[in-house]
Design a protein around this nucleic acid. Structure first.
Lengths: 140, 140
DNA sequence: ACTGCTTTTGAAAAATTTTTTCATTAAGCG
DNA sequence: CGCTTAATGAAAAAATTTTTCAAAAGCAGT
C-alpha cells in the first residue's frame, strides 16, 4: 500500500506540502530537521511554507509514515518510517539511518523489568548509534 | 563517591547553581524541564538564573550525573543518572522515572544487527514506556 | 468537469526555548 | 587571605515552534 493510500485511508487529504515532505525525506536517507525539509522542499514547491512542514510532519508521524529521531544534541530530525519496524540504527558520523526489525528481542528484557518494577510496559524506544561501514573506513 | 566528588574530579567547580539543580532533581523523581528546574530552584536559591540552569545541565550531563529523557512530545526533561546504568523506565501517566540495568540483554541483538548491516554499534538509547503500579490501579 | 463543503495552506504575529555576550562574582588553589 | 580563572546573572539575540485567520485547494457528489 502506498503512503498516499495509507494517509487517505486514515482520513487525511493528499496535499502538495505533504507530498513534498515525503519526497524530500525519501531522497534524504538521514534525519532532517523541519528547517532543512523546508529549504529542500522549496526547491520542489516554490510557495511551500515552513508552517506546513511542521503540520505535515505532525500528521505523517501520527499516521506512522514518518518517525522522529532522537539524538543526544537534537531531537528535531525526521526520517521515513517503514511500517511495522520500530528501531533505528544511526551513524553518528554521516547521519545515515537504517531501520531494523526486532521487537521480539526485547521481550525477555521487558518481562523481566515488568516483574521487578511492577510497571506495565506498553511501548519502547530503541536506537543504536555507531558507525556505518563507509565511515568506519574513512575514520581518520 | 558523591556527585560533588565526581564533578570535581572531572575538573569542574562545585557551585551553588549546580548544587541547586542536583537538589531539585533529587527531589523530583520525574523528568523536569530547564524551566521547571529553574522555578523550583529559585525557591532554594533566590538569585538563580535560568541560564545557569542550562549551563549546569550541560556540565552535569557531560559528567554523567544527569540524563536527558526523550518523550514523544518533548525531550527537554532531565533526571538524575545513577552511574553505570543506562536505561529508563517511564510512566506515561505520572511521569515517574525508574532506571534499570541490563545492557547485556541487548548484546545479542546488537551483534546480530552489526553483522547484518556492517555498522559498528557504539552506544544505544533504550527507554521503556508504560504505567507504574499506582497508575495501573487508578486507571479510570 | 462543476459545485459546495471542509480541510489545509501560507503569511504574519506571538509565544517559547535556547544561546550569546559581558561585566561581576565566587570557587579553589597556594 | 589573596589571586587566578571559571562560573554566574541579566539582557539581548537567535532559533524554534505555535497560533491566528483569510484565501486556496482537496475531494465527494453530482
Amino acid at each position: 500500500m502506498s503512503w498516499e493510500e495509507r494517509l487517505s485511508r486514515a482520513g487525511w487529504r493528499i496535499t502538495t506540502p505533504r507530498r513534498v515532505v515525503m519526497q524530500v525525506l525519501q531522497r534524504a536517507g538521514r534525519p532532517l530537521s523541519p528547517q532543512e525539509i523546508y529549504m529542500r522542499g522549496r526547491r520542489i514547491h516554490r510557495s511551500l511554507g515552513l508552517v506546513s512542514v511542521y503540520r505535515s510532519l505532525e500528521v505523517l508521524e501520527r499516521v506512522g509514515l514518518v518517525r522522529r529521531v532522537h539524538q543526544e544534541d537534537r531531537c528535531d530530525g525526521y526520517i521515513l518510517a517503514s511500517p511495522g519496524h520500530h528501531h533505528i540504527l544511526l551513524c553518528r558520523r554521516c547521519g545515515r539511518t537504517v531501520e531494523f526489525p526486532g521487537a521480539e528481542d526485547l521481550s525477555g528484557l521487558i518481562a523481566q523489568v515488568e516483574q521487578r518494577t511492577g510497571f506495565q510496559v506498553e511501548d519502547h524506544l530503541l536506537e543504536l548509534i555507531g558507525l556505518c561501514s563507509p565511515c568506519q573506513r574513512s575514520k581518520s
